[in-house]
Write a protein that binds this DNA or RNA. Structure first.
Lengths: 152, 152
DNA sequence: TGTGAAAGCGGTCCGAC
DNA sequence: GTCGGACCGCTTTCACA
């Protein structure tokens, strides 16, 4: 799929605020309501817009403690990898998990209440997953930037 | 603000799909439309729901290359930190930046087209930011899990 | 807080350009 | 790909338990 400047602007607006009416968007883009409507539908049908979600403020729901965990597996067999990925995916504290290049195999983003809960998570959940070799945790001191929007 | 099980369920649904009608949600929660409406408004007013956004599929817009960059500053003066954070925040390729504990000062998530663009980003944008000491990049081989939803 | 009903507005579809 | 008009359903408000 190819995008003109109007599509790019539209994506920009929808990534910032998905609750705008097509009327408002039509005004911003100097287009009719129907034209904007068709463009949005096209973006949805093609899967460019994958979903519409509500973003919750971590600090308002007592989940202010964020950590990144590097993880190394003991062995990199197909079986170990599949099992690890399945188990780690099912943990609600893990909001992101990336298989990465470098000294460690995986990078996890973990969101919990506080350091005590993080300790619980490490001891009771993470390290009980089979085949984990070593881990290395980094704690977030400050979230300088965090956006779900990708600027084209 | 305090949440009962209905609020928690509601947040769960809205974090998964913000375009559901209050009617559908009322059905799922066994409540009236108005009751759901009032709960949502309360969550919005209190800032628990910070925003509603469209999530775009990276792969559909040619931004499939993701890297994490560790960054160390040369000196940790107040001034350096402020400048670095301001400059890095303004870079569109940087979708996240965290001040973290450990060997490095910052962890950046960078989203670009491909390795070539990543190189451009490093050479022309990132390393031209003042006061950067050393960097260490890790490339994402596979995104195992990535969610914007926080489960309570 | 909860409910149902009434009002108003926006999303959606249509035929035309 | 765009337009305006018309319809229908949803959001929003209200009086009330």
């Amino acid at each position: 799929m190819t995008f003109d400047t109007t599509d790019i602007q539209l994506l920009h607006y929808l990534q910032a605020d998905a609750k705008q009416t097509t009327k408002e968007l039509a005004h911003k883009l100097n287009l009719s309501v129907t034209a904007v409507y068709e463009r949005i539908k096209k973006l949805e049908r093609s899967g460019v817009i994958a979903q519409y979600v509500a973003l919750v403020d971590k600090n308002k729901i007592d989940r202010s403690f964020v950590a990144f965990c590097h993880i190394k597996l003991v062995q990199h067999t197909q079986d170990n990898i599949v099992k690890f990925e399945r188990e780690v995916t099912s943990l609600k504290e893990v909001v992101a998990c990336y298989h990465i290049s470098g000294d460690y195999d995986y990078l996890l983003k973990v969101v919990v209440q506080d350091m005590e809960k993080f300790r619980d998570f490490m001891v009771k959940k993470l390290t009980s997953i089979s085949h984990i070799g070593s881990t290395h945790s980094m704690f977030v001191i400050n979230e300088v930037k965090h956006t779900t929007a990708i600027r084209l």
